[in-house]
Amino acid sequence: MPLGAHLRELRNRVVVVAVAVTVLSVVGWVFYDEVFAVLGRPLAVAAAEAGREDDVTLNIGSVVGVFDLKVRVSVFTGVLLASPVWLWQLWAFITPGLTRREKRYATAFVTASVPLFLGGVALAYTALPRAVTFLVELTPEGIVNLVDTSMYLGFVMRILLAFGIAFLLPVVLVALNVIGVLQARSMLRAWRWVVVVSFAFAAVATPSPEVTAMFFLAVPMTLLFFVAIGISALNDRRRARRDREEGYGGLADEEVSPL
């Protein structure tokens, strides 16, 4: 496919994603209060665990900041709700040259990607109170900690999206294996680096002195990586067997050919 056609296809898919996110952001706007309460809960839990309910509170510094905050939370909700759409568009864009047989993997890709993405978001959300508790406990006694709402929600939304996207890594690896770009043995050779990066990422994303929080996030990421290796190995074996069968078939045709 020419470069121009690729760019037009990318533009069309970006437009589809943008429309889906915009429409579903309206849902986030309507249910803003409920979403805000869910995002603010980790701070409330952390303050209660630290015994600082009266000293730690969210704060908005300007009138305009209220509107900006509502827009950001609404768009964040739209991105989460539109995950099936943009995951499908991603798959369709990176695999335009697949055969009809290989395109059947598209449904499996989206079916696996959406739960993994939302599962990563949910897992990060359950670990957030531990991380926020550690940060809240740094507040000196007698000091009221007026947490900037915009910065706090930005921190929470970045963590949630980061772990949701991180949990998509195994599906991306399997997708690259399906289109023949990456083999299972290549992934296996890099397993040490993947484990180190997974734990480093979890340590940075959960700034808590408790090791359990880091393991709580890093171990599932590592396990999913090895699951991707297993699925890719099965696919490599299936592809090699099909190539051998097609090779033998071609050889037999040549032997019986009068030419």
Rank of each mutant, 00 (worst) to 15 (best):
residue 144 V to G: 02
residue 175 A to E: 13
residue 168 L to E: 15
residue 160 L to Q: 09
residue 98 L to H: 04
residue 142 G to T: 03
residue 136 V to R: 02
residue 172 V to A: 14
residue 126 T to H: 10
residue 178 V to P: 00
residue 132 V to F: 04
residue 127 A to T: 08
residue 136 V to W: 05
residue 170 P to D: 11
residue 120 G to M: 01
residue 171 V to H: 04
residue 169 L to M: 14
residue 104 R to D: 06
residue 137 E to F: 00
residue 110 V to H: 03
residue 117 F to R: 00
residue 157 M to S: 13
residue 135 L to T: 00
residue 120 G to Q: 01
residue 134 F to I: 00
residue 109 F to W: 01
residue 136 V to H: 05
residue 183 Q to T: 13
residue 168 L to S: 06
residue 136 V to I: 01
residue 146 L to Q: 11
residue 137 E to P: 00
residue 179 I to S: 13
residue 118 L to C: 05
residue 109 F to H: 02
residue 147 V to S: 05
residue 168 L to R: 04
residue 115 P to G: 08
residue 106 A to Q: 14
residue 139 T to F: 04
residue 125 Y to Q: 07
residue 151 M to P: 00
residue 101 R to Y: 08
residue 164 G to D: 10
residue 184 A to G: 09
residue 132 V to P: 02
residue 140 P to M: 05
residue 120 G to A: 02
residue 184 A to D: 07
residue 133 T to C: 03
residue 106 A to V: 09
residue 109 F to P: 06
residue 121 V to G: 09
residue 154 G to D: 09
residue 143 I to H: 13
residue 155 F to K: 10
residue 165 I to P: 08
residue 130 R to K: 11
residue 107 T to R: 14
residue 162 A to L: 14
residue 95 T to K: 01
residue 115 P to L: 03
residue 169 L to R: 12
residue 144 V to S: 14
residue 102 E to T: 09
residue 114 V to Y: 05
residue 123 L to Y: 01
residue 169 L to V: 15
residue 156 V to F: 00
residue 153 L to E: 02
residue 138 L to K: 10
residue 162 A to F: 12
residue 157 M to L: 06
residue 116 L to I: 01
residue 161 L to C: 09
residue 108 A to T: 14
residue 129 P to M: 02
residue 115 P to W: 02
residue 142 G to Q: 09
residue 148 D to C: 07
residue 166 A to H: 05
residue 133 T to M: 08
residue 157 M to G: 05
residue 151 M to D: 13
residue 95 T to C: 12
residue 98 L to F: 02
residue 114 V to E: 06
residue 96 P to L: 05
residue 104 R to I: 10
residue 126 T to S: 11
residue 166 A to F: 05
residue 147 V to A: 06
residue 123 L to I: 00
residue 114 V to H: 06
residue 114 V to I: 06
residue 173 L to Q: 13
residue 147 V to T: 07
residue 132 V to K: 08
residue 131 A to E: 01
residue 183 Q to E: 15
residue 128 L to D: 01
residue 182 L to W: 10
residue 105 Y to I: 12
residue 147 V to Q: 07
residue 182 L to E: 07
residue 140 P to F: 06
residue 165 I to E: 01
residue 135 L to I: 06
residue 165 I to K: 04
residue 115 P to Y: 00
residue 140 P to T: 05
residue 142 G to F: 03
residue 140 P to L: 03
residue 125 Y to T: 00
residue 184 A to E: 08
residue 153 L to I: 08
residue 98 L to M: 11
residue 126 T to Q: 11
residue 161 L to M: 13
residue 177 N to F: 05
residue 176 L to V: 03
residue 142 G to A: 04
residue 104 R to Q: 10
residue 158 R to V: 14
residue 123 L to A: 12
residue 141 E to Y: 03
residue 159 I to Y: 03
residue 116 L to P: 05
residue 100 R to A: 15
residue 175 A to C: 12
residue 171 V to D: 13
residue 117 F to W: 00
residue 182 L to Q: 13
residue 178 V to K: 13
residue 131 A to L: 03
residue 101 R to L: 12
residue 102 E to A: 12
residue 158 R to L: 14
residue 136 V to K: 01
residue 98 L to E: 14
residue 128 L to Y: 03
residue 108 A to W: 07
residue 100 R to I: 10
residue 162 A to R: 10
residue 130 R to M: 11
residue 114 V to G: 08
residue 144 V to C: 02
